[in-house]
Simulated scan of single mutants.
Amino acid sequence: MTVKDDNIRQQILDASRGVFQRYGFAKVTMDDIAKAVHKSRTTLYYYFKNKQEVFMAIVMDESKSLFVAARKNIREDQPFVWNLKEFITVKLTMLSGMLASYHNLATDIRDNKEFFTGMRSQAIAEELSIFKQILKWAIHNHDIALIEGKDLDFLALTLVTAFSSLEQEVIMNGNLADITSRLDWLTAILAKGLK
């Protein structure tokens, strides 16, 4: 793609964000997006096959910003519990903010769990990488016992899966009350079990 193509694609995504925020996923059409970006539907179809592809590109952009923010808040010189809690807190806080911003979309997600699963699968590789980094730092700092190879991969996958369930609870049911103290408790138990 040329720079011009990248600029047009970004214009489509920027305009689409507002459309999805106002109407949610279910009610938006490619016509709505075309009107918002002041482009023809033909132009939209040059860049995206359908509204789902437009939306998934937005999700990927949002995910990137979420993971950039989360990575900025974890550090090698911090204990395992701190890094784990910081990553999860940043992620849940940003997810809650996104849900507030995309209020109608949150309803669509709650009504269609397959939609959430598709969105979630986009972020798993990045999240696995972050959990593995946190675990490696914790091993290096002697916060947890030595874990290597497939066991480290499996533990990272287990953490991703467990915290994904927590995210799903927050997203599907809006249960974020008292999450900070609950994360303190949960991360302390995890650290103690991995000593």
Rank of each mutant, 00 (worst) to 15 (best):
L152K: 02
A34G: 01
G97H: 05
T161N: 14
L84T: 09
V54I: 15
K51E: 12
K91N: 13
A26C: 01
K64A: 14
K136Y: 04
A123M: 09
I179F: 15
N50F: 06
W137V: 10
R22K: 15
Q21H: 06
E169L: 14
N83Y: 05
K49E: 13
M98N: 13
F80T: 01
K192D: 12
F116R: 06
D6Q: 15
T43G: 00
T29R: 00
L183Q: 05
S181F: 06
I124P: 11
V19D: 02
L92A: 10
R120N: 10
I88D: 03
A188C: 06
H142F: 11
D143L: 04
D178S: 12
K35I: 08
M56G: 04
K72R: 13
H38E: 13
R120F: 13
A57E: 12
V3D: 14
A162W: 11
H142S: 15
R9L: 09
L194D: 11
L152H: 05
I179A: 14
S63I: 08
M98I: 15
G193H: 01
T107A: 15
K136N: 05
E169K: 13
A26V: 00
M56R: 06
L146H: 12
E62T: 02
A138K: 00
D32N: 14
K91G: 06
S96F: 13
D153M: 12
V68M: 12
E126D: 11
V81M: 11
F116L: 15
R9T: 07
V90M: 05
S101N: 07
D151S: 12
E127V: 03
L194M: 07
E53R: 12
Y45V: 03
V54Y: 07
F55R: 12
H142G: 07
